[in-house]
Design a protein around this nucleic acid. Structure first.
Lengths: 243, 243
DNA sequence: CTGGCGCACTGATCCCGATCAACGGGCGTC
DNA sequence: GACGCCCGTTGATCGGGATCAGTGCGCCAG
Protein backbone atom coordinates (compact mmCIF):
# COMPACT_ATOMS: atom_id res chain seq x y z
CA UNK A 1 0.00 0.00 0.00
CA UNK A 2 1.53 3.20 -1.18
CA UNK A 3 1.95 6.10 1.22
CA UNK A 4 1.15 9.54 -0.13
CA UNK A 5 1.33 11.91 2.75
CA UNK A 6 -0.94 14.91 2.47
CA UNK A 7 0.37 18.47 2.74
CA UNK A 8 -1.36 18.55 6.11
CA UNK A 9 0.73 15.63 7.37
CA UNK A 10 3.85 17.18 5.86
CA UNK A 11 3.21 20.47 7.60
CA UNK A 12 2.63 18.94 11.03
CA UNK A 13 5.65 16.71 10.49
CA UNK A 14 7.77 19.83 10.33
CA UNK A 15 6.99 20.46 13.99
CA UNK A 16 6.86 17.00 15.49
CA UNK A 17 8.68 13.97 14.11
CA UNK A 18 5.80 11.72 13.19
CA UNK A 19 5.90 8.01 12.50
CA UNK A 20 4.49 6.71 9.26
CA UNK A 21 1.55 5.40 11.23
CA UNK A 22 0.84 8.81 12.69
CA UNK A 23 1.13 10.49 9.33
CA UNK A 24 -1.30 7.97 7.90
CA UNK A 25 -3.69 8.75 10.74
CA UNK A 26 -3.53 12.39 9.66
CA UNK A 27 -4.16 11.42 6.07
CA UNK A 28 -7.19 9.41 7.15
CA UNK A 29 -8.62 12.58 8.67
CA UNK A 30 -9.35 13.93 5.24
CA UNK A 31 -13.06 13.53 4.75
CA UNK A 32 -15.24 14.24 1.76
CA UNK A 33 -13.49 16.27 -0.90
CA UNK A 34 -15.06 19.49 -2.01
CA UNK A 35 -14.04 21.68 -4.90
CA UNK A 36 -14.50 25.43 -4.82
CA UNK A 37 -14.15 27.49 -8.01
CA UNK A 38 -11.95 30.56 -8.27
CA UNK A 39 -13.18 33.68 -6.54
CA UNK A 40 -16.15 32.15 -4.77
CA UNK A 41 -16.75 32.71 -1.07
CA UNK A 42 -16.50 29.54 0.97
CA UNK A 43 -18.01 31.25 3.98
CA UNK A 44 -20.13 34.34 3.62
CA UNK A 45 -19.50 37.48 5.62
CA UNK A 46 -21.32 37.36 8.93
CA UNK A 47 -22.41 33.80 8.38
CA UNK A 48 -21.13 30.83 10.30
CA UNK A 49 -20.40 27.48 8.83
CA UNK A 50 -20.30 24.21 10.65
CA UNK A 51 -17.57 22.67 8.58
CA UNK A 52 -13.84 22.90 8.91
CA UNK A 53 -11.52 22.05 6.06
CA UNK A 54 -8.02 20.94 5.32
CA UNK A 55 -6.77 22.49 2.10
CA UNK A 56 -5.67 19.84 -0.35
CA UNK A 57 -4.76 22.16 -3.20
CA UNK A 58 -5.16 25.79 -4.17
CA UNK A 59 -4.93 29.03 -2.22
CA UNK A 60 -7.50 30.67 -0.01
CA UNK A 61 -7.55 34.08 1.62
CA UNK A 62 -9.72 35.32 4.45
CA UNK A 63 -10.67 38.95 4.27
CA UNK A 64 -13.07 41.59 5.42
CA UNK A 65 -14.69 44.28 3.30
CA UNK A 66 -15.48 47.64 4.86
CA UNK A 67 -18.43 49.86 4.05
CA UNK A 68 -16.43 52.01 1.60
CA UNK A 69 -15.53 48.92 -0.40
CA UNK A 70 -11.94 48.63 0.73
CA UNK A 71 -10.82 45.14 1.50
CA UNK A 72 -8.31 43.92 4.05
CA UNK A 73 -6.96 40.42 3.61
CA UNK A 74 -6.10 38.92 6.96
CA UNK A 75 -4.19 35.88 5.87
CA UNK A 76 -3.76 33.20 3.25
CA UNK A 77 -4.17 29.48 3.52
CA UNK A 78 -2.08 27.18 1.39
CA UNK A 79 -2.29 23.39 0.98
CA UNK A 80 -1.96 21.67 4.34
CA UNK A 81 -3.51 24.55 6.24
CA UNK A 82 -6.48 24.08 8.48
CA UNK A 83 -9.32 26.32 7.53
CA UNK A 84 -12.72 27.36 8.69
CA UNK A 85 -12.19 26.55 12.31
CA UNK A 86 -11.81 30.23 13.06
CA UNK A 87 -14.93 31.20 11.18
CA UNK A 88 -16.82 28.44 12.96
CA UNK A 89 -15.78 29.71 16.34
CA UNK A 90 -16.00 33.41 15.58
CA UNK A 91 -19.68 34.01 15.96
CA UNK A 92 -19.13 37.73 15.94
CA UNK A 93 -16.47 38.08 13.31
CA UNK A 94 -17.47 38.76 9.76
CA UNK A 95 -14.85 38.08 7.22
CA UNK A 96 -15.14 35.82 4.24
CA UNK A 97 -12.87 33.07 3.10
CA UNK A 98 -12.47 33.34 -0.61
CA UNK A 99 -10.51 31.00 -2.84
CA UNK A 100 -8.10 32.87 -5.07
CA UNK A 101 -7.35 29.76 -7.08
CA UNK A 102 -9.55 26.75 -7.61
CA UNK A 103 -9.50 24.99 -4.30
CA UNK A 104 -9.79 21.38 -3.36
CA UNK A 105 -10.52 20.93 0.32
CA UNK A 106 -11.31 18.03 2.61
CA UNK A 107 -14.18 18.48 4.98
CA UNK A 108 -13.16 17.67 8.53
CA UNK A 109 -15.34 17.16 11.53
CA UNK A 110 -13.83 18.52 14.67
CA UNK A 111 -15.04 15.37 16.40
CA UNK A 112 -12.88 13.22 14.13
CA UNK A 113 -9.93 15.48 14.83
CA UNK A 114 -10.33 15.07 18.57
CA UNK A 115 -10.66 11.31 18.26
CA UNK A 116 -7.45 11.18 16.30
CA UNK A 117 -5.81 13.13 19.08
CA UNK A 118 -6.95 10.58 21.62
CA UNK A 119 -5.29 7.81 19.64
CA UNK A 120 -2.01 9.62 19.21
CA UNK A 121 -1.49 12.55 21.58
CA UNK A 122 1.61 13.65 19.71
CA UNK A 123 -0.64 14.75 16.88
CA UNK A 124 -2.36 17.15 19.24
CA UNK A 125 1.01 18.65 20.05
CA UNK A 126 1.80 19.00 16.38
CA UNK A 127 -1.49 20.71 15.67
CA UNK A 128 -0.99 23.10 18.55
CA UNK A 129 2.44 24.04 17.29
CA UNK A 130 1.20 24.54 13.77
CA UNK A 131 -1.74 26.62 14.99
CA UNK A 132 0.47 28.77 17.21
CA UNK A 133 2.85 29.34 14.32
CA UNK A 134 -0.06 30.39 12.13
CA UNK A 135 -1.25 32.81 14.77
CA UNK A 136 2.29 34.14 15.21
CA UNK A 137 2.27 34.95 11.53
CA UNK A 138 -0.94 36.94 11.88
CA UNK A 139 0.72 38.85 14.70
CA UNK A 140 3.79 39.50 12.55
CA UNK A 141 1.46 40.66 9.81
CA UNK A 142 -0.09 43.14 12.23
CA UNK A 143 3.35 44.40 13.24
CA UNK A 144 4.27 44.75 9.59
CA UNK A 145 1.26 46.82 8.68
CA UNK A 146 1.59 48.94 11.81
CA UNK A 147 5.28 49.73 11.81
CA UNK A 148 7.07 48.66 8.63
CA UNK A 149 7.14 50.74 5.48
CA UNK A 150 5.90 49.42 2.13
CA UNK A 151 9.19 47.91 1.03
CA UNK A 152 9.86 46.13 4.30
CA UNK A 153 6.28 44.91 4.49
CA UNK A 154 6.37 43.45 1.01
CA UNK A 155 9.71 41.76 1.57
CA UNK A 156 8.50 40.28 4.83
CA UNK A 157 5.37 38.91 3.27
CA UNK A 158 7.16 37.30 0.36
CA UNK A 159 9.61 35.66 2.76
CA UNK A 160 6.80 34.42 4.97
CA UNK A 161 5.03 32.86 2.02
CA UNK A 162 8.22 31.15 0.94
CA UNK A 163 8.80 29.70 4.39
CA UNK A 164 5.29 28.36 4.61
CA UNK A 165 5.34 26.85 1.13
CA UNK A 166 8.66 25.20 1.84
CA UNK A 167 7.09 23.47 4.84
CA UNK A 168 4.64 21.63 2.64
CA UNK A 169 7.04 21.00 -0.19
CA UNK A 170 5.64 23.61 -2.58
CA UNK A 171 8.64 25.86 -2.88
CA UNK A 172 12.09 26.63 -1.64
CA UNK A 173 13.94 29.57 -0.18
CA UNK A 174 14.99 30.55 -3.67
CA UNK A 175 11.59 30.67 -5.33
CA UNK A 176 8.03 29.51 -5.56
CA UNK A 177 4.88 29.78 -7.64
CA UNK A 178 2.52 32.47 -6.40
CA UNK A 179 -0.93 33.01 -7.92
CA UNK A 180 -1.54 36.37 -6.24
CA UNK A 181 -2.31 39.43 -8.31
CA UNK A 182 -0.84 42.76 -7.30
CA UNK A 183 -4.33 43.77 -6.24
CA UNK A 184 -4.51 40.92 -3.75
CA UNK A 185 -1.04 41.75 -2.56
CA UNK A 186 -2.12 45.36 -2.05
CA UNK A 187 -5.16 44.43 0.02
CA UNK A 188 -3.00 42.11 2.07
CA UNK A 189 -0.30 44.64 2.81
CA UNK A 190 -2.60 47.58 3.38
CA UNK A 191 -1.28 49.39 0.30
CA UNK A 192 -2.68 50.48 -3.05
CA UNK A 193 -2.12 48.31 -6.08
CA UNK A 194 -0.24 51.13 -7.81
CA UNK A 195 2.20 51.40 -4.99
CA UNK A 196 2.69 47.65 -4.74
CA UNK A 197 3.75 47.76 -8.36
CA UNK A 198 6.32 50.45 -7.67
CA UNK A 199 7.62 48.61 -4.61
CA UNK A 200 8.01 45.39 -6.58
CA UNK A 201 9.97 47.30 -9.20
CA UNK A 202 12.26 48.73 -6.54
CA UNK A 203 12.83 45.31 -5.01
CA UNK A 204 13.66 43.99 -8.46
CA UNK A 205 16.02 46.89 -9.20
CA UNK A 206 17.69 46.28 -5.85
CA UNK A 207 18.38 42.73 -6.97
CA UNK A 208 16.49 41.30 -4.00
CA UNK A 209 13.49 39.52 -5.45
CA UNK A 210 11.37 39.33 -8.60
CA UNK A 211 7.63 38.77 -8.70
CA UNK A 212 6.60 38.13 -12.28
CA UNK A 213 4.34 35.78 -14.22
CA UNK A 214 3.04 34.15 -11.06
CA UNK A 215 6.54 33.27 -9.98
CA UNK A 216 8.55 34.63 -7.05
CA UNK A 217 12.32 34.40 -7.36
CA UNK A 218 14.40 35.31 -4.35
CA UNK A 219 17.82 36.52 -5.49
CA UNK A 220 19.28 37.86 -2.27
CA UNK A 221 17.90 35.98 0.70
CA UNK A 222 20.13 37.65 3.28
CA UNK A 223 19.34 41.07 1.92
CA UNK A 224 15.62 40.41 2.09
CA UNK A 225 15.83 38.93 5.58
CA UNK A 226 17.73 41.99 6.78
CA UNK A 227 15.39 44.44 5.06
CA UNK A 228 12.29 42.82 6.51
CA UNK A 229 13.77 41.81 9.87
CA UNK A 230 12.44 38.39 9.05
CA UNK A 231 12.91 35.74 11.70
CA UNK A 232 15.43 33.37 10.15
CA UNK A 233 14.32 30.46 12.34
CA UNK A 234 11.37 30.19 10.00
CA UNK A 235 13.76 29.34 7.20
CA UNK A 236 16.48 27.43 8.92
CA UNK A 237 14.88 24.40 10.52
CA UNK A 238 14.78 21.57 8.03
CA UNK A 239 13.96 18.69 10.34
CA UNK A 240 11.10 18.51 12.85
CA UNK A 241 11.44 20.77 15.88
CA UNK A 242 10.53 17.95 18.26
CA UNK A 243 12.18 14.63 17.55
CA UNK B 1 -19.46 31.30 52.36
CA UNK B 2 -19.38 34.42 50.31
CA UNK B 3 -19.05 34.17 46.57
CA UNK B 4 -16.72 36.68 44.92
CA UNK B 5 -16.49 35.75 41.30
CA UNK B 6 -13.25 36.67 39.63
CA UNK B 7 -13.14 38.80 36.48
CA UNK B 8 -12.17 35.59 34.69
CA UNK B 9 -15.39 33.89 35.75
CA UNK B 10 -17.36 37.02 34.87
CA UNK B 11 -15.88 37.15 31.42
CA UNK B 12 -16.56 33.51 30.61
CA UNK B 13 -20.02 33.89 32.08
CA UNK B 14 -20.74 36.42 29.38
CA UNK B 15 -20.50 33.68 26.80
CA UNK B 16 -21.97 30.67 28.54
CA UNK B 17 -24.52 30.82 31.37
CA UNK B 18 -22.56 29.29 34.21
CA UNK B 19 -23.94 27.95 37.46
CA UNK B 20 -22.53 29.24 40.69
CA UNK B 21 -20.75 25.95 41.09
CA UNK B 22 -19.10 26.33 37.72
CA UNK B 23 -18.08 29.88 38.40
CA UNK B 24 -16.57 28.78 41.69
CA UNK B 25 -14.64 26.10 39.82
CA UNK B 26 -13.21 28.86 37.67
CA UNK B 27 -12.33 30.90 40.72
CA UNK B 28 -10.53 27.91 42.19
CA UNK B 29 -8.34 27.83 39.09
CA UNK B 30 -6.52 30.91 40.28
CA UNK B 31 -3.22 29.70 41.62
CA UNK B 32 -0.39 31.52 43.29
CA UNK B 33 -0.70 35.29 43.04
CA UNK B 34 2.14 37.23 41.52
CA UNK B 35 2.56 40.98 41.45
CA UNK B 36 4.37 42.69 38.61
CA UNK B 37 5.42 46.35 38.88
CA UNK B 38 4.61 48.96 36.26
CA UNK B 39 6.58 48.79 33.06
CA UNK B 40 8.38 45.53 33.70
CA UNK B 41 8.41 42.77 31.13
CA UNK B 42 6.64 39.63 32.26
CA UNK B 43 8.09 37.66 29.39
CA UNK B 44 11.24 38.80 27.63
CA UNK B 45 11.50 39.14 23.91
CA UNK B 46 12.47 35.87 22.30
CA UNK B 47 12.21 34.01 25.58
CA UNK B 48 9.58 31.47 26.46
CA UNK B 49 7.94 31.11 29.81
CA UNK B 50 6.30 28.01 31.14
CA UNK B 51 3.63 29.81 33.12
CA UNK B 52 0.26 31.06 32.01
CA UNK B 53 -1.63 33.69 33.96
CA UNK B 54 -5.08 34.98 34.62
CA UNK B 55 -5.04 38.72 35.15
CA UNK B 56 -6.57 39.65 38.48
CA UNK B 57 -5.99 43.39 38.26
CA UNK B 58 -4.07 45.84 36.13
CA UNK B 59 -3.45 46.14 32.43
CA UNK B 60 -0.91 44.34 30.29
CA UNK B 61 0.09 44.85 26.69
CA UNK B 62 1.99 42.50 24.41
CA UNK B 63 4.25 44.19 21.92
CA UNK B 64 7.20 43.80 19.62
CA UNK B 65 10.06 46.22 19.16
CA UNK B 66 11.74 46.49 15.77
CA UNK B 67 15.39 47.18 15.10
CA UNK B 68 14.85 50.92 14.57
CA UNK B 69 13.27 51.18 18.01
CA UNK B 70 9.69 51.51 16.88
CA UNK B 71 7.21 49.51 18.89
CA UNK B 72 4.01 47.85 17.79
CA UNK B 73 1.56 46.86 20.48
CA UNK B 74 -0.41 43.82 19.41
CA UNK B 75 -3.07 43.77 22.07
CA UNK B 76 -3.97 44.55 25.65
CA UNK B 77 -5.04 42.24 28.41
CA UNK B 78 -7.40 43.44 31.08
CA UNK B 79 -8.55 41.72 34.28
CA UNK B 80 -10.12 38.37 33.49
CA UNK B 81 -7.99 37.84 30.41
CA UNK B 82 -5.90 34.76 29.98
CA UNK B 83 -2.30 35.62 29.39
CA UNK B 84 0.98 34.01 28.50
CA UNK B 85 -0.52 31.02 26.77
CA UNK B 86 0.36 32.49 23.44
CA UNK B 87 3.93 33.27 24.43
CA UNK B 88 4.30 29.76 25.77
CA UNK B 89 3.14 28.26 22.52
CA UNK B 90 4.91 30.70 20.21
CA UNK B 91 8.38 29.29 20.23
CA UNK B 92 9.32 31.48 17.33
CA UNK B 93 7.55 34.66 18.18
CA UNK B 94 9.34 37.39 19.99
CA UNK B 95 7.15 39.94 21.55
CA UNK B 96 7.12 40.98 25.16
CA UNK B 97 4.27 41.25 27.57
CA UNK B 98 4.66 44.40 29.58
CA UNK B 99 2.40 45.63 32.36
CA UNK B 100 1.31 49.20 31.86
CA UNK B 101 -0.13 49.39 35.35
CA UNK B 102 0.88 47.37 38.36
CA UNK B 103 -0.44 43.93 37.68
CA UNK B 104 -1.70 41.21 39.94
CA UNK B 105 -1.90 37.89 38.17
CA UNK B 106 -2.70 34.32 39.14
CA UNK B 107 -0.39 31.67 37.90
CA UNK B 108 -2.28 28.90 36.16
CA UNK B 109 -1.05 25.52 35.13
CA UNK B 110 -2.52 24.38 31.88
CA UNK B 111 -2.92 20.97 33.48
CA UNK B 112 -5.25 22.41 36.10
CA UNK B 113 -7.23 24.12 33.38
CA UNK B 114 -7.72 20.89 31.49
CA UNK B 115 -8.76 19.05 34.63
CA UNK B 116 -11.38 21.68 35.31
CA UNK B 117 -12.65 21.17 31.80
CA UNK B 118 -13.06 17.47 32.42
CA UNK B 119 -15.24 18.17 35.43
CA UNK B 120 -17.46 20.66 33.65
CA UNK B 121 -17.25 20.55 29.86
CA UNK B 122 -19.29 23.72 29.57
CA UNK B 123 -16.29 25.61 30.88
CA UNK B 124 -14.26 24.41 27.92
CA UNK B 125 -16.91 25.82 25.64
CA UNK B 126 -16.80 29.13 27.46
CA UNK B 127 -13.02 29.33 27.21
CA UNK B 128 -13.14 28.53 23.51
CA UNK B 129 -15.66 31.27 22.91
CA UNK B 130 -13.70 33.78 24.90
CA UNK B 131 -10.48 32.83 23.14
CA UNK B 132 -12.07 33.06 19.72
CA UNK B 133 -13.49 36.46 20.58
CA UNK B 134 -10.05 37.62 21.65
CA UNK B 135 -8.57 36.42 18.41
CA UNK B 136 -11.36 38.09 16.46
CA UNK B 137 -10.35 41.33 18.11
CA UNK B 138 -6.76 40.92 16.96
CA UNK B 139 -8.09 40.36 13.45
CA UNK B 140 -10.25 43.50 13.71
CA UNK B 141 -7.17 45.33 14.91
CA UNK B 142 -5.30 44.20 11.82
CA UNK B 143 -8.15 45.36 9.59
CA UNK B 144 -8.16 48.69 11.40
CA UNK B 145 -4.49 49.34 10.91
CA UNK B 146 -4.58 48.18 7.32
CA UNK B 147 -7.64 49.95 6.01
CA UNK B 148 -9.08 52.50 8.43
CA UNK B 149 -7.80 56.04 8.77
CA UNK B 150 -6.52 57.45 12.05
CA UNK B 151 -9.87 58.72 13.29
CA UNK B 152 -11.77 55.53 12.53
CA UNK B 153 -9.00 53.43 14.01
CA UNK B 154 -8.97 55.37 17.25
CA UNK B 155 -12.73 55.29 17.57
CA UNK B 156 -12.79 51.58 16.92
CA UNK B 157 -10.15 50.88 19.52
CA UNK B 158 -11.85 52.93 22.21
CA UNK B 159 -15.12 51.15 21.54
CA UNK B 160 -13.45 47.77 21.66
CA UNK B 161 -11.86 48.56 25.01
CA UNK B 162 -15.21 49.67 26.37
CA UNK B 163 -16.92 46.50 25.26
CA UNK B 164 -14.25 44.32 26.82
CA UNK B 165 -14.23 46.21 30.10
CA UNK B 166 -17.99 46.04 30.29
CA UNK B 167 -17.77 42.26 30.08
CA UNK B 168 -15.80 42.07 33.31
CA UNK B 169 -17.72 44.81 35.06
CA UNK B 170 -15.02 47.47 34.79
CA UNK B 171 -16.85 49.98 32.67
CA UNK B 172 -19.94 50.72 30.67
CA UNK B 173 -20.80 51.82 27.17
CA UNK B 174 -20.75 55.39 28.38
CA UNK B 175 -17.31 55.46 29.94
CA UNK B 176 -14.44 53.71 31.64
CA UNK B 177 -11.10 54.29 33.32
CA UNK B 178 -8.18 53.88 30.93
CA UNK B 179 -4.55 54.05 32.10
CA UNK B 180 -3.07 54.29 28.61
CA UNK B 181 -0.85 57.21 27.67
CA UNK B 182 -1.14 58.72 24.23
CA UNK B 183 2.23 57.15 23.45
CA UNK B 184 0.87 53.68 24.16
CA UNK B 185 -2.20 54.48 22.13
CA UNK B 186 0.03 55.58 19.25
CA UNK B 187 2.06 52.38 19.28
CA UNK B 188 -1.13 50.38 19.39
CA UNK B 189 -2.79 52.15 16.48
CA UNK B 190 0.29 52.41 14.31
CA UNK B 191 0.33 56.20 14.57
CA UNK B 192 2.63 58.83 16.05
CA UNK B 193 1.88 60.23 19.47
CA UNK B 194 1.49 63.73 18.06
CA UNK B 195 -1.11 62.62 15.64
CA UNK B 196 -2.99 60.62 18.25
CA UNK B 197 -3.25 63.84 20.20
CA UNK B 198 -4.73 65.68 17.24
CA UNK B 199 -7.16 62.85 16.50
CA UNK B 200 -8.34 62.80 20.10
CA UNK B 201 -8.93 66.54 19.90
CA UNK B 202 -10.98 66.10 16.73
CA UNK B 203 -13.06 63.35 18.30
CA UNK B 204 -13.67 65.61 21.29
CA UNK B 205 -14.60 68.56 19.08
CA UNK B 206 -16.96 66.29 17.17
CA UNK B 207 -18.69 65.51 20.44
CA UNK B 208 -18.07 61.81 20.06
CA UNK B 209 -15.71 60.87 22.88
CA UNK B 210 -13.29 62.41 25.35
CA UNK B 211 -10.06 60.82 26.54
CA UNK B 212 -8.69 62.86 29.42
CA UNK B 213 -7.17 62.29 32.85
CA UNK B 214 -7.18 58.53 32.41
CA UNK B 215 -10.89 58.52 31.75
CA UNK B 216 -12.75 57.73 28.55
CA UNK B 217 -16.22 59.24 28.21
CA UNK B 218 -18.32 58.17 25.27
CA UNK B 219 -20.76 60.93 24.39
CA UNK B 220 -22.19 59.71 21.11
CA UNK B 221 -22.18 55.93 20.99
CA UNK B 222 -24.07 55.66 17.72
CA UNK B 223 -21.83 58.20 16.07
CA UNK B 224 -18.71 56.34 17.18
CA UNK B 225 -20.11 52.98 16.13
CA UNK B 226 -20.91 54.36 12.70
CA UNK B 227 -17.56 56.09 12.29
CA UNK B 228 -15.61 52.99 13.24
CA UNK B 229 -17.93 50.45 11.66
CA UNK B 230 -17.85 48.80 15.04
CA UNK B 231 -19.76 45.54 15.36
CA UNK B 232 -22.64 46.39 17.66
CA UNK B 233 -23.12 42.81 18.76
CA UNK B 234 -20.10 43.37 20.95
CA UNK B 235 -22.07 45.96 22.87
CA UNK B 236 -25.58 44.66 22.77
CA UNK B 237 -25.55 41.27 24.40
CA UNK B 238 -26.05 41.67 28.10
CA UNK B 239 -26.82 38.11 29.05
CA UNK B 240 -24.74 35.06 28.19
CA UNK B 241 -24.77 34.04 24.53
CA UNK B 242 -25.45 30.41 25.39
CA UNK B 243 -28.08 29.85 28.05
C1' DC C 1 -11.34 39.92 -36.20
C1' DT C 2 -12.91 42.72 -32.62
C1' DG C 3 -14.57 44.47 -28.45
C1' DG C 4 -14.24 43.99 -23.58
C1' DC C 5 -11.99 43.10 -19.45
C1' DG C 6 -8.61 42.19 -16.02
C1' DC C 7 -4.06 43.02 -14.81
C1' DA C 8 0.64 45.17 -15.10
C1' DC C 9 2.74 49.44 -15.44
C1' DT C 10 3.79 54.63 -15.34
C1' DG C 11 3.50 59.79 -14.61
C1' DA C 12 1.45 63.76 -12.06
C1' DT C 13 -0.60 65.44 -8.17
C1' DC C 14 -2.55 65.40 -3.60
C1' DC C 15 -3.02 64.60 1.25
C1' DC C 16 -2.78 62.14 5.59
C1' DG C 17 0.05 61.42 8.98
C1' DA C 18 5.23 61.54 10.31
C1' DT C 19 8.76 64.40 11.82
C1' DC C 20 10.91 68.36 13.89
C1' DA C 21 10.67 71.83 17.26
C1' DA C 22 8.89 74.07 21.08
C1' DC C 23 6.13 75.07 25.40
C1' DG C 24 3.66 74.06 29.72
C1' DG C 25 2.08 71.46 33.56
C1' DG C 26 2.24 67.74 37.08
C1' DC C 27 5.08 65.18 39.96
C1' DG C 28 8.87 63.00 42.22
C1' DT C 29 13.75 63.78 43.85
C1' DC C 30 17.56 65.99 45.79
C1' DG D 1 12.51 75.50 45.98
C1' DA D 2 14.92 73.93 41.81
C1' DC D 3 15.73 70.63 38.80
C1' DG D 4 14.39 66.66 35.75
C1' DC D 5 11.34 64.00 33.49
C1' DC D 6 7.21 62.37 31.51
C1' DC D 7 3.23 63.54 29.29
C1' DG D 8 0.03 66.47 26.76
C1' DT D 9 -0.34 70.04 23.40
C1' DT D 10 0.40 72.89 19.31
C1' DG D 11 2.58 74.85 14.98
C1' DA D 12 5.45 74.21 10.71
C1' DT D 13 7.24 71.35 7.41
C1' DC D 14 8.19 67.04 5.06
C1' DG D 15 7.37 62.82 2.78
C1' DG D 16 5.43 58.21 1.81
C1' DG D 17 1.92 56.39 -0.23
C1' DA D 18 -2.94 57.29 -2.12
C1' DT D 19 -5.37 58.94 -5.87
C1' DC D 20 -6.26 60.18 -10.55
C1' DA D 21 -5.51 59.38 -15.20
C1' DG D 22 -3.87 56.95 -18.81
C1' DT D 23 -1.23 53.18 -21.78
C1' DG D 24 -0.47 48.57 -23.22
C1' DC D 25 -0.94 43.71 -23.26
C1' DG D 26 -2.99 39.02 -23.03
C1' DC D 27 -7.10 36.52 -23.07
C1' DC D 28 -11.67 35.25 -23.74
C1' DA D 29 -16.38 35.80 -25.96
C1' DG D 30 -18.86 37.35 -29.59
Amino acid sequence: MSVIHSPFARKLGAFVALSNKEQSALDRLHGRRKVFPVGVDMVHQGQTDQAAYILASGWVCSYKILADGTRQIVDFQIPGDFLGLRSVLFRTSDHNIEPVTKVEASEVLVRDLLETFNETPRLATAVLWAASRDEAMVVEHLVSIGRRDAKERTAHFLLELGARLKLVGLGSTSGYACPLSQYLLADTLGLSAVHVNRVLRELREDGLVTFQHGQVEIHDLDGLVALAEFDKTYLDHDGPLLK
